[in-house]
Amino acid sequence: MGFKLLSKLLVYLTASIMAIASPLAFSVDSSGEYPTVSEIPVGEVRLYQIADGVWSHIATQSFDGAVYPSNGLIVRDGDELLLIDTAWGAKNTAALLAEIEKQIGLPVTRAVSTHFHDDRVGGVDVLRAAGVATYASPSTRRLAEVEGNEIPTHSLEGLSSSGDAVRFGPVELFYPGAAHSTDNLIVYVPSASVLYGGCAIYELSRTSAGNVADADLAEWPTSIERIQQHYPEAQFVIPGHGLPGGLDLLKHTTNVVKAHTNRSVVE
C-alpha cells in the first residue's frame, strides 16, 4: 500500500471513529477524501466538511520552486461564519470567499490569524475590503508590521502568557507558548472536538522541520505538551499544512522538532 493511500485511509478511519463516538456532533463529509496538494491548482481553494458547521479550507501556493498546501478553518456561528487564517495570499483568499459563498452561503463576518507569517495573514486586506472584521493577538499584529505583512485590524486580548485561553464565538483560542513562531495560536472547536494546530503542528508525513527561522526550538516541545494537557479530548487535529489526523500529530511534531534540534547540535 502506497504512503499517500495509507495517509488518506488514516484520515478516513479517524473521521469514521469520530462519527461513531459522537453521532450528534459529527456529520463528516462523505463526498470524498481530504484534498491534497496535487489536486488543488494554485489560485483555487477546496472546502472539506469535518463536522456539522465545521470545515477546513485548503489552498496551495508556490514557494521556492515548489507547491505547498495550506489549511485553515471555518466555523459556523449562528447565521454567520468565523474564518481562521487566510488562504495564503490575496488571490487565494478572494477564491476562498467565493467558494464559501458557493458552498455554504453564509457571510464571513470575523477572521482570526493564528500567527504573523504570510500563509496566515496574506489576504487580510481582501477580507477587510469584503467587510470582514480581522483579528490577531497584539504580538501577531506587531510582528506582521515588522515583517511588512498585512496586519489584522483588531487585537485579541488575554493571550499574552503561555497557557492563556479565551473564548471567541464558537471557538476557544489558546496560546501554548512559542513553537513554530513566538505568537502562534491554537484554535479548538469544543462542539466538535476539532483542534486546529496551525503551523505549530505537523502532518504525519512530514519528517523535516522546514521553516524554523522564527521558531523557538527549545520551547516548542513544552508548548505541545500544554496543548495535549489542555485538549486531551480532541479527536480531529488539523495541521497548518497537509493531512489531518488525531492527537498523534502532536507527538510526531515533537519528535521531528527534537530530531532537528539534535542534528543542529551535532553539526
Rank of each mutant, 00 (worst) to 15 (best):
I50L: 08
N262E: 13
S161W: 10
G210K: 05
M18W: 08
Q103G: 10
N71T: 05
E203C: 07
A259D: 13
H115R: 02
L96M: 08
R226P: 05
A87T: 02
G158D: 08
V132N: 01
S181Y: 05
V28K: 08
V187K: 01
A66V: 14
S155R: 12
G72Y: 06
A178G: 12
H117K: 01
G123Q: 04
P221I: 10
H230Y: 09
L24R: 10
G72A: 03
N262W: 09
T153D: 11
I238T: 05
Y135G: 01
S160P: 07
I58S: 09
G148Q: 10
S27N: 09
F3V: 12
P152D: 01
L81S: 02
Q49T: 10
A213C: 08
H115T: 00
N92Y: 03
S181C: 02
I151G: 03
W220K: 00
A19E: 15
S155V: 14
R46M: 14
I74S: 04
G78F: 07
G169L: 05
A215M: 03
L195A: 01
L9F: 10
P232R: 10
L96V: 01
S155D: 13
E172L: 03
I100K: 00
G2L: 13
W88V: 00
S113Q: 03
R226E: 03
L106K: 12
V132C: 02
P244I: 09
A15N: 13
Y34R: 10
P239G: 03
A179V: 06
L250Q: 04
V132R: 02
N149A: 14
R206S: 15
A94V: 13
L73M: 15
A94Q: 13
P35A: 10
F26G: 14
V132K: 05
L159P: 07
R46D: 07
V121S: 00
D119R: 01
A165I: 13
V124G: 05
A21S: 13
R76V: 11
P107L: 08
E147H: 15
V187L: 03
D29V: 10
R206M: 15
I227F: 05
V121G: 01
E101A: 14
D85V: 00
K8S: 14
V67A: 15
S193K: 14
T182L: 14
A25G: 13
W88I: 00
V266L: 14
L6S: 14
E145D: 12
A90K: 09
I186K: 00
S181E: 01
G122Y: 08
D85L: 00
G246N: 13
E233W: 10
L13W: 10
A59F: 04
A21F: 14
V187W: 01
S56W: 15
L47N: 04
V45H: 04
F174N: 03
A259F: 08
N149Q: 13
F63S: 05
S38M: 13
R206H: 15
V45I: 08
R110E: 08
S7K: 10
L243Y: 15
N184G: 02
G240R: 05
A66K: 12
G245T: 03
V237P: 03
A94N: 13
E99T: 11
S16I: 13
T254H: 12
L250N: 03
V28T: 11
H260C: 10
A95Y: 15
V166M: 12
L185P: 04
A98R: 14
A144M: 04
V265P: 13
N92F: 00
L243S: 15
F63M: 07
C199L: 02
S162T: 10
S16R: 11
A94D: 10
L73E: 02
D64F: 15
I227D: 02
G148T: 05
T114M: 06
L6F: 09
A95Q: 13
G177L: 02
P239F: 03
D29H: 09
V28R: 08
T254W: 14
L9C: 15
A98Y: 13
V146Q: 13
I227G: 03
A130I: 08
V146I: 13
R76I: 09
A144V: 09
G89D: 02
N211C: 02
T36A: 14
F3M: 14
F236C: 08
P152R: 02
F63Q: 05
L195W: 01
A87G: 00
L73T: 01
